[in-house]
Simulated assay, not measured.
Amino acid sequence: MTDSDVAVSIFERIGGSATIDRLVDRFYERMDTLPEAKIIRAMHAADLAQIGDVLKRYLTEWTGGPRLYSVEKGHPRLRQRHIGFAIGDAERDAWMICMRGALEETVSNAAARQDLDRALSGLADWMRNR
């Protein structure tokens, strides 16, 4: 990474809104189909469209793009919003399997993909509540 990369957000480095949209779509497709994701798929409604839109807005803002999430929902308070779900190592790992696969399929910039993977891994670790 060069000094100029530091000033550029991950949102821009991965390709902006179009990439976030593809990333989230592929993430939920993987969650819907991978046997390894059964444990987390069971935590979601049958229709993933609404939660997909929320994740797109959240990731857009979280990666440095336009403020789409907080203007509607306020502070993310992710742990509080997920407190009703038992999230341990198995759930974190299933989430990361889906996300890593989606990252591989949608983010062509290897350095940006690695940086986003590292950030998402930290977030997934932090979400554990058991």
Rank of each mutant, 00 (worst) to 15 (best):
E29H: 06
S121I: 02
S108V: 00
A18F: 03
V24S: 11
L59D: 12
R79N: 08
C98A: 15
I83E: 13
L68S: 06
D25E: 14
D89M: 05
D5R: 12
A42Q: 14
T2M: 10
A7M: 09
G16V: 00
E105F: 01
Y58V: 01
V6W: 14
D89C: 03
R22I: 00
G88L: 06
L116G: 05
H82Q: 05
E61G: 01
Y69E: 11
A18R: 13
V6Q: 15
D53M: 02
W95L: 07
G88A: 08
D89H: 09
E29K: 03
V24W: 15
R81A: 06
S17A: 09
D115I: 00
D125V: 00
A46H: 11
L48Q: 14
A90N: 12
D3M: 10
R57E: 15
R13G: 03
R57H: 12
R26L: 05
T33S: 11
D89V: 00
L34Y: 12
L103A: 07
K73A: 05
E105I: 00
S17M: 08
R79S: 09
A124S: 13
G52E: 15
L48Y: 10
R92Q: 12
R57D: 15
D125P: 06
D5Q: 14
M1C: 07
T106K: 10
N129I: 01
H75P: 03
M99H: 05
S9E: 04
D125S: 07
K73F: 08
W62N: 05
R22H: 10
V6E: 15
E91T: 01
A102N: 06
V24Q: 12
L103S: 07
I97M: 14
D25F: 02
H82T: 02
G101C: 07
L103T: 01
E29I: 00
R77L: 07
E29C: 03
G88Y: 13
M96Y: 07
R118P: 06
G16Q: 13
P35D: 15
L55R: 05
L68K: 10
D47C: 02
A90C: 02
L23T: 04
R77M: 14
Q114I: 00
R100V: 02
F11R: 10
Y28N: 03
A49V: 00
G15S: 10
I14G: 14
D47F: 02
M43P: 03
A119L: 13
V71G: 15
R79M: 11
